[in-house]
């Protein structure tokens, strides 16, 4: 045992008592030391509040047509202007955000859950199960993901649910690969060897040892994925494979607004900005969380 290592671990012993394996206060302390991550977090929280309480913050009904106010420019009445049938763009962005963010979380949770389970099992069991799983994942990964998502979404029929489903399937291999690699490391730990001496089942080792110990890189991956998924869902809607008119959805709004981009910049501009802001905020926050949870990865 290296002396320095022990001294470091002694250093990490903090005066406060912890009752959970995530030390929230320490996490908060680290967050305050990283302003960019804090900015990401604040933006995410703001977006979430605006979107969750959309009915309160919205100034108009997102689907009410008002032909007298077609393509109105931003004003006190319509913050972000109106579209070609006079719907309030600001309100549509708030309600559209509900869909985009729900798709983001839904996809990440489904893909993350299934992917982690397959990957952890694959790493833990090894052998032919591992070989076959990983070859299947390699096949999925070898096709460019956007092409695969488009093909899947088109085959399933254009709708936001199908688009989300397609994205989830394509994202699964990333989680499988990540969690398998981590599971291979955990499998070699002495506490797993100890569990084997008292004949613990594979399920027990998976449940108590592998999953809890591989969770943090997966949470990081999931946070980074949220931004990308929102972007992908918007892209699919943009090309007509996702949300359909008249649903308020960011990608679909940008797509329609494209026709008016020269004269009515606000129509596609504001939804586009909403996509950019949300995706960037999640990416910045994810990057920051990764540095906090796994400082080694970022060591120079």
């Amino acid at each position: 045992m290296s002396e320095i290592l022990q001294e470091k671990s002694a250093k990490q012993e903090k005066p406060i008592k912890k009752r959970s394996f995530i030390d929230w206060r320490y996490l908060w302390y680290q967050l305050t030391g990283s302003p960019l991550t804090m900015v990401g977090l604040v933006v995410i929280l703001l977006i979430l509040i605006l979107v969750i309480f959309a009915p309160i913050f919205a100034t108009h009904d997102p689907n009410t047509i008002d032909l007298r106010a077609r393509l109105a420019s931003p004003s006190a009445d319509h913050f972000f202007g109106t579209d070609e049938v006079g719907r309030d763009i600001y309100s549509r962005i708030l309600f559209g955000g509900r869909l985009s963010i729900a798709v983001g979380f839904g996809v990440v949770i489904v893909a993350g859950f299934i992917g982690t389970l397959i990957g952890a099992l694959s790493g833990l069991i090894g052998g032919w199960f591992d070989t076959i799983t990983m070859r299947i994942m390699d096949v999925v990964l070898s096709v460019p993901s956007l092409v695969l998502i488009m093909a899947l979404a088109a085959a399933l029929g254009p709708s936001l649910v199908n688009a989300a489903f397609a994205i989830a399937i394509v994202r699964i291999p990333y989680y499988v690969r990540l969690s398998r690699g981590q599971a291979l490391l955990v499998r070699e730990m002495p506490y797993v060897a100890a569990a084997q001496t008292f004949k613990a089942s594979r399920w027990h080792i998976l449940r108590w040892h592998v999953i809890p110990n591989i969770l943090s890189p997966i949470v990081v991956q999931a946070t980074l994925d949220l931004g990308n998924t929102i972007l992908l869902a918007a892209a699919l809607s943009f090309i007509g494979l996702g949300a359909q008119q008249p649903t308020a959805e960011w990608g679909a709004m940008v797509a329609t607004g494209r026709n008016y981009i020269l004269d009515q910049w606000w129509y596609s501009g504001f939804p586009g900005f909403a996509i950019l802001l949300t995706a960037t905020a999640f990416n910045i926050f994810g990057d920051g969380i990764r540095d906090i949870l796994d400082p080694k990865q970022n060591a120079h």
Partner: peptide
């Protein structure tokens, strides 16, 4: 000493 989260380790 090594400054840490909440104080320092007086090494």
């Amino acid at each position: 000493n090594f400054p840490i989260y909440q104080g320092a380790v007086h090494a």
